[in-house]
Design a protein around this nucleic acid. Structure first.
Lengths: 221, 221
DNA sequence: ATAGAATGTTACTTGCGGTAACGCCGAGTC
DNA sequence: GACTCGGCGTTACCGCAAGTAACATTCTAT
């Protein structure tokens, strides 16, 4: 590569770097607005926060869902890191699962606006099927991604037999859904301490439903 | 009550009956549109399906969320009936739990559009809190209601100790969330038969995660 | 100087949820 | 019959949002 071509390539890199930096600034502005106003924030408000006008946002992110996907990516990466660290702690399996559930609840409690944003359904690209809309891809991206990540961890660490990958995924998604729905209810009602809920959900995963006695005067389960 | 007052009361009843009948017709039209187009269907499309114009819808239901709440009520009642019947079947506890998970998966598989509609978050009345929005009440009404219903059943049928009601609710919401997230993933990808997924989720509830062996060449869980 | 690329703005379109004003009809009252 | 009221319906409109076309400016390369 000659001197001139080298200079050309360097300038293109500089430009790409500048574009990425700009994109980051726009995402940070979007973050501030969404955390303040919720996922219903308007593109105009986000643009104003970034000191630009709307078409610039569209140029960088395509449309609102593209912007929100990029924003969700940042938050999801952070949450995943937290959960993975909790699962990797030293201790018994029960302790590690409790630490993970606790990390999830701590995260949603500490930043409920982030949580709400991440749970907001986004229209997925390519969502149209012959039914007119995709009926199975509507859940929040965070849930899917958490489920797949947890499944990967379970599948590589446990001996689940010949259908290991499949079982791990069913469990991964199931456990994430359990945390999600119970966490959402708990965040809304604060019926007990976080520690109690962690303990109760871990009991559920540890099979306590199977072994609990029937109530003395009930029809039994 | 004299003859005239009696006639007056009868006419008011007739009118209320006519209003309810009309309301039902409007809900049925809304149902057709939403199942065809998804929850993003416009009020105008719904009104057109019913052969009226928008303000009539608003007169009956207040606003779009009111219409959607009424529609969700109908579908949720039906699904709850199905789940309750499955839980009441004769058999072991495991069989009954499997039947319930199976009933849920069968329902979402048979009517994915209904499922999508029911899972669409709605803004709850009185959702504003001092944070500017309610961070814990955003999940789909169906999930909350299923969780509470299952909690009531668990709490009355199992002996869960002094905190029975609280534990039952944590479990109820957790189990519903598990079915939801795993069901959503399964509906989107069809990775296995319904029977397999039922079995795998029931295993999860039966504590298999706790007793599964570590993988031979993994770091363990 | 010219052309192209990148970055930015303004003005606008379309569609949505929701609402005000009005019309018509039937029933009741005088 | 005339009038009023209530219920059911329409039309026209508003504000706001997402998204887009057209244009301007600046910088760089030829």
């Amino acid at each position: 590569m000659g001197g001139q071509a080298q200079a050309h390539a360097n300038r293109r890199e500089d430009q790409q770097e500048a574009t990425l930096r700009r994109r980051r600034e726009l995402l940070e502005a979007a973050d501030r607005v969404v955390l303040r106003e919720g996922p219903e924030a308007s593109m105009n408000a986000i643009a104003a926060e970034a000191g630009i006008t709307k078409p610039i946002l569209y140029r960088h992110f395509g449309d609102k869902s593209g912007l929100y996907r990029a924003l969700a990516q940042r938050h999801t990466d952070a949450l995943l890191g937290t959960l993975r660290a909790a699962l990797d702690r030293p201790g018994t399996r029960r302790e590690r699962v409790e630490a993970t559930v606790d990390a999830y609840l701590t995260a949603i409690e500490g930043a409920p606006q982030v949580y709400r944003f991440l749970m907001h359904p986004t229209d997925q690209a390519g969502a149209d099927t012959e039914k007119g809309f995709d009926a199975g891809r509507h859940s929040a991206p965070l849930l899917r991604r958490l489920g797949e990540e947890l499944a990967a961890i379970i599948g590589e660490r446990l001996d689940l037999g010949p259908e290991s990958a499949q079982v791990a995924r069913a469990w991964g998604h199931g456990i994430v859904g359990m945390m999600y729905a119970a966490g959402d209810w708990w965040l809304g009602e604060h019926p007990c301490s976080r520690e109690r809920l962690v303990h109760q959900l871990s009991d559920l995963l540890w099979g306590t439903l199977a072994v609990a006695a029937d109530a003395p005067d009930g029809p039994g389960l």
